[in-house]
């Protein structure tokens, strides 16, 4: 199944190279990929410097968000948990806006700094949600969702405060970023993004078997030999890092961590050892498709990919809430 998904990702990525607002023929795209186009030609610049990096960012961001979704769902034993629903995305976005207000941008070192701000914001938000929701017995569906909404609203308001203090020239860029955009990023920063995503993915996937045991309840997992406290901290850090790196490099993009894991669970079941790697690939496919739609549906203008994922995700969330998890509310 993982092979099929990987092949699908390659296919979608290859197809995305040929689609865009600039009208370039398929032959010209092939020439650019094969290195036969002139160095400064439009087809070479558009294919290799705009579309290809954007495809890489989409695949990475989608994979990272979907894995973060699986991780938060397993950690909280709540199928509706997801970085944006939990307010973690807003926390990371607040961190980035604060970083941007200090003048941090997309260069290698500044991107690392922005990710650190995003990571701190994500940890703060996730920690706050956990503390609010853990009052009483366990993390019920409704208290966790409410805590996520509260924390999300708080950090959105905090973002508005910081934006209000920014000078007018910088405002446009921040607002564009806040909608979630997969603009191409420099190769150094892209490498850094990939590194953070790999570390976050590794922290989650290397504990996938323990996450299955946590589904039985924390106490039963302890009785089976799982170091539950260390596991929770590791997964918490991994999921926050994945969310933070996506937010720092692309802006807040919602619902990928909800849609992709649920679709894959219908195909593969709930074994996290299959679900986590499949979500990495499946998330990449989903966000690539969403971005291809965002780039072309109102061409020559572009929509933000975050708008597309939210337009798909919000009804999906309502569907899940009203059908599958109604009994838990």
């Amino acid at each position: 199944m993982l092979g099929v998904l990987s092949a699908a990702l390659l296919l979608v990525a290859a197809a995305a190279l040929f689609v865009g607002s600039a009208s370039i023929s398929p032959r010209a795209v092939l020439n650019a990929v094969a290195g036969r186009a002139a160095p400064e030609s439009v087809e070479r610049v558009v294919t290799l410097s705009i579309r290809l990096p954007r495809i890489a960012v989409a695949a990475l961001a989608g994979g990272a968000l979907a894995v973060a979704g699986v991780a938060f769902q397993a950690l909280t034993r709540n199928p509706l948990a997801e970085p944006s629903v939990l307010g973690v995305t807003s926390g990371a976005a607040f961190g980035v806006v604060v970083g941007q207000s200090f003048g941090l941008g997309p260069t290698f070192l500044q991107a690392a700094g922005l990710t650190a701000f995003a990571f701190a914001g994500a940890l703060l938000a996730a920690g706050a949600v956990y503390l609010i929701a853990a009052v009483g017995r366990g993390l019920s569906v409704q208290t966790l969702l409410l805590a996520g909404v509260i924390v999300g609203i708080f950090f959105s308001s905090a973002i508005t405060v910081v934006i209000s203090l920014l000078d007018f020239n910088r405002l446009g860029g921040v607002i564009h970023w806040l909608l979630g955009n997969l603009t191409p990023i420099p190769p150094g920063a892209l490498g850094l993004f990939a590194l953070f995503a790999v570390v976050g993915f590794w922290l989650v996937v290397s504990h996938a078997r323990e996450l299955n045991l946590m589904a039985l309840g924390e106490e039963t997992a302890l009785l089976l030999g799982v170091g539950a406290e260390r596991l929770k901290l590791t997964i918490f850090v991994g999921a926050a890092l994945l969310t933070a790196s996506v937010v720092a490099f692309t802006g807040p993009i919602g619902f990928v961590g909800l849609i992709v894991p649920h679709a894959l669970r219908m195909l593969l079941g709930s074994d996290n050892r299959l679900l986590v790697p499949a979500s990495l690939v499946g998330g990449g496919i989903f966000l690539l498709l969403a971005d291809t739609v965002a780039r072309n549906v109102v061409a020559p203008a572009e929509l933000s990919v975050g708008v597309i994922t939210s337009l798909c995700g919000a009804p999906f969330f309502v569907y899940l809430l009203r059908t599958r998890y109604r009994a838990n509310l």
């Binding site: 996938a208 299955n212 045991l213 589904a215 669970r265």
Partner: peptide, 30 residues
């Protein structure tokens, strides 16, 4: 240990559940 109470709603089948009992015999295995 067979804990008190009914098993929490878990999305696994019987075979998966029983295999989870093998975790302490190879916690490093995927």
């Amino acid at each position: 240990v067979v804990p008190q109470g009914t098993l929490a709603q878990v999305p696994f089948n019987v075979g998966d559940l029983v295999l989870m009992g093998r975790y302490p015999h190879g916690p490093g295995r995927y």
